[in-house]
Simulated scan of single mutants.
Amino acid sequence: MRDLAELDDRVTHCAACPRLVEWRERVAVEKRAAFRDETYWGRPVPGFGPPDAAIAIVGLAPAAHGANRTGRMFTGDRSGDVLYQALHDVGLASQPRSLRIGDGLSLRGTRITAPVRCAPPANKPTPGERDTCRPWLARELLLLRSTVRVVLVLGGFGWQAVLPVLGAAAWRVPSPRPKFGHAARATLPATDGGPDLHLLGCYHVSQQNTFTGRLTPAMLREVLEEAKHLAALA
Rank of each mutant, 00 (worst) to 15 (best):
D103Y: 15
L144W: 04
L154C: 10
T110Y: 07
L105V: 15
A114K: 05
V148N: 05
C118D: 15
D131N: 13
P115L: 01
V151A: 06
T132Y: 05
L107N: 02
A122E: 14
T147H: 02
V148C: 04
G156V: 05
D131Y: 11
R134Y: 05
G155R: 09
P135K: 02
G109E: 03
L137Q: 07
V148S: 03
G128R: 11
P127V: 00
P135R: 04
T110W: 06
T113C: 00
C133K: 13
P135S: 02
A122G: 12
L154E: 12
G158W: 01
G158E: 06
G158P: 04
R130D: 15
R145D: 14
L154P: 10
V153K: 05
L141M: 02
G128K: 07
D103T: 15
S106F: 06
L107R: 00
P135H: 02
G128D: 12
T113K: 00
R139K: 12
L143Y: 11
P135W: 03
L144P: 04
L107F: 00
D103N: 13
C133R: 12
A122Q: 15
T110S: 06
R111M: 11
T113I: 00
L137H: 09
G155N: 11
L152E: 10
A138D: 12
P125V: 06
L144Q: 07
A138Y: 08
R111N: 11
T132K: 08
K124Q: 10
P121R: 05
T147D: 07
N123A: 09
A114P: 06
A119Y: 03
E129A: 09
V153P: 05
L154F: 10
T147F: 00
E140N: 02
C133H: 14
A119D: 08
T110L: 05
N123L: 11
C133V: 14
L137R: 05
C118Y: 06
G158Q: 05
L142M: 15
P127M: 00
L107G: 00
V116M: 08
C118H: 11
R130P: 11
I112D: 04
F157Q: 15
R149T: 09
N123F: 06
V151M: 05
V148Q: 07
R117Y: 03
R117S: 06
L107E: 03
A122F: 08
P125Y: 03
I112R: 01
V116K: 04
D131K: 13
E129Y: 05
P121V: 09
L144K: 10
V151K: 04
G156T: 07
E140L: 01
L154G: 12
A114M: 09
T126I: 04
E129P: 06
I112Q: 01
L137T: 14
V148P: 01
G104S: 00
A122K: 10
L142K: 14
A138G: 11
C133Q: 14
S106M: 10
I112T: 03
P115G: 08
K124H: 11
G104K: 01
T147S: 06
I112M: 01
A119L: 03
L137M: 10
G128Q: 08
S146L: 15
A122Y: 09
L143F: 09
P115C: 03
N123T: 13
S146C: 15
S146P: 12
P127R: 00
T110Q: 07
P125F: 04
P120T: 14
R149I: 06
E140Y: 00
R145E: 14
P120F: 08
G104W: 03
R111K: 11
I112A: 01
P120V: 12
I112V: 02
